[in-house]
Design a protein around this nucleic acid. Structure first.
Lengths: 327, 327
DNA sequence: AACAAGATGGCAACCCCTTGCCGTCGGTTG
DNA sequence: CAACCGACGGCAAGGGGTTGCCATCTTGTT
């Protein structure tokens, strides 16, 4: 079961364990001849260092944990991909954890993993600010799709993005906008609403909010009916899943998109491009968000602890077929 | 940085480290009074056991690695979700690793992680049989979407599933079937072709194969053109992504689905239900595949090593709008 | 030829926790 | 009251590496 250890290699090569260790971790510290012999023996024996033993002493684990608020949401896939890619480049291992939309689960998982990882990437954390600060006090933390003063974060620039959404809808003649809100404890949901509202008011549009809705396709029905009841001609849904659900329900009710109602989503998930009508949505390079977050985490040690970088990546409004001229 | 250790707790509680350790891991071994005191002190100090130190001694890490051949493919999401859920139930941590469709990368990652995990779940591994056996000799392994004598595996029952696909198409009057094949080193791609062919021949249909194609939407264009050139009225694509790409290209060329050509995919990914026309596809409970695989892995110790269970879960043919009567 | 300085390897402590074994103590039994 | 026994705590040896420090061996210098 257990592979050969540093002791086996040392014996076989006729050196001390310290020499074997140094041959791997500090090659300059042993002569080329010895090193080659040790490495040869190690290779022959199939020796591989035990990361746990190494982590035990050094405190560095070469592992980062990514906590995702809901692994069900395809949107996170891109974040995960980006994070995984960046971690792999530095030969870090990515631990994936699902918080199931539960702050309690999220907290427990973080506490459990805390002694075993070098840091956390928290994607759309549902934790209260205070808890986030506690985590950050223990370990380096980078937030994704959430901001908190004092903590490093990577987010898409929703300020500009939402202004573009509003401009797009306003230019099509819409005067009233309804935002179908996401979960209450989602920072992103709050931000979208704040920014949409101010942008819309500046554009002279009326804005209202409905919700919160769990951002899943299945919830789209209820959300759509709320929208119909509201009477707005332009709907901005918390994310693409909800938007797709809304469109399905509208189709069911015989309400045409975009002729009668325009619908906009967020995230630009894969399905947005294949549904009917194809969904206009505010997307962005989510892979880059994942990448940047891990990047930040890996370089956390080289920054003064009170200097928490906040990276804002550009969004891009993807115009498709779910938005149109107001009738 | 480092939290309090067992020594800190021992000192604070006025007992030996062994007592602290036992208070956590072997509660019956210390008196209730002592245990309570130790636990209280530990809680107060915020002590949490270091999993590495624990793993070092016990050899059990409470961690399983899931290696995914291509994390880009939404199909794997469900597998990942299922695996993550099952792991969490047993308080295991899931390590997610992407092999980027490269057998070399896959192999390296496995070797690197091998000393640090209790076992591997390999999803659609692209590794040659021989390498899989080597891995299995080191660590418990469970395959997903792949079978190999002697190794535990969880797959969807493509035998019956493909027969249903063929029966469905045959019943609609189709006499010729074209399979758009997946990657060459994908076991699933080989299996699908084998099973489809025999089922089709038995049903008196002509079967041909084209490809291999990388199973992504972007490759659908080339695949569609190959299909058009072939002239078959029924297309079975290696997976939903490819099928969606095919349909996009067909639409672009003015070929109507399902009136002129029927298209079937595999996996029943989320997008299959929202694309136009909605895609007929052979799905299954992929979450259960992920769940079962981890389950198998966690119970691997309690089985004789030469008894490798092979779990076959039922598929379900989901009829939607991309298949129709042959004209 | 004598000596300083650098290169190299080994010793042993340490990282944090688990566990086999032993000693102590209070209580039971005859 | 002695002999025994079980319950409970502590000691110390790992488990697999890393690393500060010291000893030895080269090599170069004058």
């Amino acid at each position: 079961m257990a592979g050969p250890t540093i002791y086996d290699v040392a014996t076989a090569a006729g050196v001390a364990t310290s020499t074997v260790s140094r041959a791997f971790t500090n090659p300059g510290r042993v002569s080329a001849t010895t090193r080659d012999r040790v490495l040869a023996v190690a290779a022959e024996l199939g020796y591989r260092p035990n990361p746990h033993a190494r982590a035990l002493l050094s405190g560095r684990h070469h592992t980062v944990a990514m906590v995702v608020s809901d692994i069900t949401n395809p949107h996170y896939f891109e974040l995960i991909r980006g994070a995984e890619m960046r971690a792999r480049i530095s030969e870090y291992t990515l631990l994936l954890v699902n918080a199931e939309e539960s702050p309690r689960v999220e907290w427990e998982q973080i506490q459990r993993l805390s002694p075993a990882v070098d840091g956390f990437v928290l994607a759309a954390s549902r934790l209260p600010d205070e808890n986030l600060r506690q985590v950050a006090a223990q370990r380096p933390v980078v937030l994704m799709s959430r901001e908190l003063p004092g903590l490093a974060s990577v987010v898409l620039d929703h300020g500009e993005g939402c202004r573009q959404v509003v401009a797009h809808l306003a230019s099509l003649g819409h005067r009233e906008l309804l935002y179908l809100a996401g979960p209450r404890n989602s920072w992103m949901a709050g931000t979208r609403w704040t920014v949409l509202r101010s942008a819309a008011e500046q554009a002279g549009m009326t804005v209202r909010r409905s919700g919160p809705f769990t951002p899943k396709v299945a919830q789209g029905g209820a959300a759509a009916d709320a929208a119909v009841n509201d009477g707005a001609t332009a709907i901005v849904a918390h994310n693409d899943l909800l938007a797709i659900g809304v469109m399905q329900r509208l189709a069911q009710r015989g309400i045409r998109v975009p002729e009668e109602v325009s619908v906009v989503g967020f995230d630009d998930i894969f399905a947005a491009d294949v549904c009917t009508p194809r969904l206009t949505t505010l997307g962005g390079a989510h892979v880059d968000v994942g990448r940047a977050a891990v990047e930040l985490l890996l370089t956390a040690g080289s920054r003064p602890p009170d200097d928490a970088p906040r990276i804002t990546l550009p969004t891009q409004l993807v115009l498709r077929d779910s938005t149109g001229q107001r009738q």
